[in-house]
Every structure is written in structure tokens, then in C-alpha cells.
Design a protein around this nucleic acid. Structure first.
Lengths: 110, 110
DNA sequence: CGAAGTTACGTCCTACGTAACGATT
DNA sequence: AATCGTTACGTAGGACGTAACTTCG
């Protein structure tokens, strides 16, 4: 254990899924408000991190490989969970503010 | 939509869970191979991002708040999913290498 | 007085944008 | 010739470490 898997972040997974949805790196970059070079670099880094060939050039266009398609649902599931986590945080925050409205100066209530 | 929720990354959630597990910022920092200042800063940033008071000082020690305890399972679930994603990637990579062993020069097989 | 946390400062690494090149249709 | 992708370069933001201060037990 040398420490080679340095934790892939959510951002990188979002990039990969964006390419899958958009159908090309160019379109995905526009959707993400990024430039092609930045996006392509992150994708390559993701492939190196995971040790998986996720994308390949087919007819001048970048499309998902076999393993890319296989991995896609896992990436989607992770992003969905991340989204749910953010939603949960927002609900807790709203809940907290509502309680503060009821007991402005008394945190020991109930 | 001004763009205030700039995507909280997995790393930050790991820090929060580490504090919950270790029982203090100091212990968590040691477990994460980090220093207290770095860890504390990330925790504060997380609270600001989420708009949630996750931690508080009680008796000279930093412990989880009420909402902190409520949010904890969501953070754990997210990290578990992230872990599963990594595992899936590793399995796909192993699978791919096994196939390559069987068909070294022929990717069109089957 | 000791321990834990916070704040302030400086440094390093990562991510991004711009520009130029190559490949494909 | 046009489009997509890649490579090279430079810059900006985020994360971390070190040091000094404050607070609680």
C-alpha cells in the first residue's frame, strides 16, 4: 500500500457523466461551462486513477468504451447520492431555521 | 441562482465523518495525517457551504451538534457509495485485464 | 499550568484558460 | 476546408503546514 489511489472527487465523476450525456467532449465542455482541454485532461486523469479506459476515439468523436458503459451506472449512482446528501443538508438547515423561529432565545426547549 | 453551492467534495465529507468517529478534531487530524488547523478550516468551510452548524465546543472539546448527528448518516452513506464506486472500478479493471489475457491481440472477439 | 482549538501567514499542488498543433471526415 | 481532439504553456484558486495567540479544564 503505497497510496496510489488518491481519492477521485465528485467533480471528476460529474465530468465523465457529462460526456456520456452530451455524446462528445466538446458538447460536455459547453454544458459544464468549461473548455475542451480542461475537460479532456480531467478525463484522462480519471482513467489513470481508475486504471480503466473509459473513452476512445471512434470516427473522430470521443465515445464511451465497453467498460465506460459498464462503469457509467456506478458513477451516476454516486452523483445521485451526492445530490441526495446536499438535499438532506438543505432540509436540515430549513428545519433548523424553523425551530429557531419558534424558540429564538431558548435552545434547551423540548 | 447565483451559484452559491459550489459542490462539496468527498474529501470534505470524509473529514467530517473522521471527526465524528475520532471524537475530537485533534484525534481526527492524526487519523487523517493532517494538522488541526487544516482540518478545522475545512470543517468550517463545510458548515458555511451547507449552512449547517455541524460542530460545537462543549467542555473544551469539539463535538457534533444536534444537526451534526442528524446529518452524519447521510455523509456516511455518501462515502459508502463512493467506496463502492471505487471497488466497482477496480473489479472492472481486473475483469478487463483477464479478458486481455484471453484475447491479447483481438478486441473484436465475442 | 496543560491541552485543545483558532487565527494568521506563507507555500505547494491542482484545476482552469489561452494558444498552437495534429488528426479525421 | 472544417471540426474535434490533443498538447504546451502560463495563471489563479484551494489545500496544507508552521507558528503564535486564546480559551477552557
Amino acid at each position: 500500500m503505497i497510496g496510489l489511489e488518491a481519492t477521485v472527487e465528485l467533480r471528476t465523476f460529474r465530468y465523465f457523466v457529462a460526456v456520456a450525456d452530451a455524446g462528445s467532449v466538446n458538447a460536455a465542455a459547453q454544458a459544464l461551462h468549461l473548455t475542451q482541454p480542461s475537460l479532456a485532461r480531467q478525463l484522462h486523469r480519471l482513467e489513470r486513477r481508475l486504471g480503466l479506459p473509459l473513452l476512445e476515439l471512434r470516427g473522430g468523436r470521443t465515445v464511451l468504451t465497453e467498460v465506460g458503459h459498464q462503469f457509467l451506472p456506478y458513477a451516476r449512482a454516486l452523483l445521485a447520492t451526492a445530490d441526495a446528501t446536499q438535499v438532506a443538508a438543505r432540509l436540515l438547515a430549513a428545519n433548523l431555521r424553523a425551530e429557531e423561529q419558534l424558540t429564538p432565545e431558548d435552545e434547551t426547549a423540548a
